[in-house]
């Protein structure tokens, strides 16, 4: 089976550790995963904001890039939903029959938890993550894809995890793509309530299957110095006990110390709480697991 990773533009740029975690996880489960270099973006931002014309070339690029694969895996529920629900419609609305046919020929696109549970048939992926975690089921994963409890089944099988239920979990966090900018006051008000529920759980980590929602909630948690960090589902599932060896931790710290501006090298996600450095998503540890 030829499996392609659609990493999404956001994760590619801001959260590469999530993409590395997906690769590490799938390889650990015995899958050979490829990253077609021609990929850019699913076009969701343009489509959802009303810029359909601008969306057409992105739909075309997606169909061309992923043609010929058996399956596409993506660490984003909302990007998977965009491709599955709307790509064909964008092509049809543009009156482009050839593009519509190409879209129909695109391989099945799976959100990560769907791929793991439905295609690979696993819930215990051999992860180890001894932290208190709460999970936000993102709207498009739930309501458009219907992933249901797949992410929770995967998380429950993680060794050492203290998984706590998030109150009012089904309520939207308030991100909503360009809504977060166009209606930023309302977006922040919704995010504040989500953050309040996260804090009520006493969790150290907020987990979700979409980095876009995590960027919004995490941005609030970081601004308020709450001591809660955000991690994509893939990063928790990729975490393994051997990553926590002291040697690995030393390797983790090494690149940051050599940077002239002291910016942390790998974990670009802000860390309000000084972390042990034994982060499961460091590039070094991820690399080590690749053949």
């Amino acid at each position: 089976m030829r499996i392609a990773l659609f990493v999404t533009c956001l994760t590619d740029t801001l959260y590469p550790e999530t993409g590395r975690a997906v690769v590490k996880l799938l390889e650990r489960l015995g899958c050979a995963v490829e990253f077609p270099a021609g990929q850019t973006c699913c076009g969701q931002m343009h489509f959802n904001t009303g810029y359909r014309r601008e969306c057409v070339p992105l739909v075309r690029r997606f169909a061309e890039t992923f043609a010929g694969y058996d399956a596409v895996v993506t660490p984003s529920g909302s990007c998977a939903a965009m491709v599955r629900e709307y790509h064909e419609r964008v092509a049809e609305a543009a009156g482009d029959a050839r593009l519509a046919a190409a879209v129909r020929a695109t391989p099945a696109v799976y959100e990560l938890s769907e791929f793991l549970v439905d295609v690979l048939g696993v819930t215990d992926v051999g992860a180890y993550f001894p932290h208190r975690v709460t999970f936000h089921p993102t709207c498009h994963s739930q309501r458009m894809l219907g992933v249901g409890d797949r992410p929770l089944r995967l998380l429950r099988a993680v060794r050492g995890i203290d998984l706590v239920e998030l109150p009012a979990a089904d309520q939207c966090c308030g991100f909503g793509g360009t809504f977060a900018l166009k209606n930023h006051d309302t977006s922040v008000a919704m995010g504040a309530d989500k953050a309040r529920h996260v804090l009520a759980t006493g969790a150290e980590v907020l987990c979700a299957g979409d980095n876009s929602c995590l960027m919004h909630i995490g941005g609030l948690l970081s601004r308020l110095r709450t001591g809660v960090r955000t991690l994509h589902l893939a990063e928790i599932l990729a975490a393994a006990e051997e990553d926590r060896a002291p040697a690995a931790a030393e390797e983790d710290r090494a690149p940051a110390a050599t940077e002239e501006d002291q910016a942390p090298a790998a974990p670009s996600r802000s860390r309000p709480v000084p972390h042990s450095g034994k982060s499961p998503q460091s590039p070094r540890t991820a690399e080590r697991s690749t053949p």
């Binding site: 922040v188 960027m215 995490g218 941005g219 996600r269």
Partner: peptide, 12 residues
Amino acid sequence: ARDVPVPARESF
């Protein structure tokens, strides 16, 4: 009201 992460030095 929200921080944003510094874009990664090395993209995916």
